[in-house]
Amino acid sequence: MDKIHLVKLCVGAESIDDLLHWQASGRSVSSDGMPRHVTRMWPKQETALLNGGSIFWVIKGIILARQPILRLEEVVREDGISRCGIVLDRNVVQTRPAPRRPFQGWRYLKPEDAPADLPTSRANEGKLPAELDAALAEIGVL
């Protein structure tokens, strides 16, 4: 069975810590308290996405992290419109920085095009300024 990922801009976040802080605030959680991202469109490749897919977060123009996708759930808000809730694992995995141009919504990301996870030995290293991270990723150093 095939696997596919999603890539999504993490609007308003300056760092992975901002993403974690927003998710810890509980403003968007599933019925069982897991973090979720609500989007207008339901992924057509649902089966492949739920076969080990992750959402890769683009922060300040760079993919920096991913979260495994646990399930999709229907979300109906006050306006009565049905949306897709992408329920995520609480574990945020840092990835090798990979530059990504701006886009709207989310996009599919093939596993072979996804940045690799950072080795756990590097996950606790001090973070570089976002501009330096972007420049290094752009020239392929990171």
Results as ranks from 00 to 15, higher is better:
Ala24Thr: 03
Asn51His: 10
Thr39Val: 15
Leu19Gln: 09
Val58Phe: 01
Val11Glu: 07
Val38Glu: 03
Arg36Cys: 14
Gly53Arg: 06
Ser54Arg: 09
Arg27Leu: 15
His21Arg: 13
Ala48Ser: 13
Trp22Pro: 00
Thr39Arg: 03
Lys8Thr: 10
Ser54Gly: 07
Ser31Tyr: 09
Ile16Pro: 00
Trp57Cys: 07
Trp42Cys: 04
Gly12Lys: 05
Gln45Asp: 11
Gly12Ala: 04
Ile59Met: 03
Phe56Trp: 04
Gly52Cys: 04
Ala24Gly: 05
His37Val: 13
Leu50Pro: 09
Arg27Ala: 15
Thr39Lys: 01
Asp18Lys: 06
Val38Arg: 01
Gly26Thr: 11
Trp57Val: 09
Phe56Ala: 05
Gly12Asn: 05
Trp22Glu: 12
Asn51Tyr: 06
Val29Met: 06
Val7Asp: 04
Ser28Gln: 07
Gly52Lys: 07
Glu14Met: 08
Trp22Ala: 14
Gly12Leu: 05
Lys8Glu: 13
Ile55Ala: 06
Asp18Gly: 04
Leu6Arg: 13
Leu49Asp: 02
Val7Phe: 02
Leu20Ser: 02
Cys10Ile: 00
Ala13Leu: 02
Thr39Met: 09
Val11Gln: 09
Ala13Tyr: 04
Ala48Leu: 08
Trp22Val: 14
Leu6His: 10
Gly53Ala: 09
Gly26Val: 09
Cys10Leu: 00
Lys3Val: 15
His5Leu: 11
Gln23Leu: 11
Pro35Gln: 12
Trp22Leu: 12
Ala13Phe: 07
Leu9Trp: 02
His21Tyr: 04
Asp18Gln: 05
Met34Gly: 04
Phe56Ile: 05
Ser28Cys: 08
Ser30Trp: 00
His21Gln: 11
Trp42Leu: 10
Thr39Gln: 07
Ala48Thr: 02
Gln45Ile: 02
Leu6Lys: 09
Lys44Ala: 07
Asp32Ser: 12
Leu9Ile: 10
Arg27Pro: 02
Ile55Lys: 05
Asp17Ala: 12
Gly53Asn: 08
Lys3Met: 15
Val38Phe: 01
Trp22His: 11
Gln23Thr: 09
Asp32Ala: 09
Arg27Met: 14
Val7Ala: 06
Gly52His: 04
Ala13Gly: 01
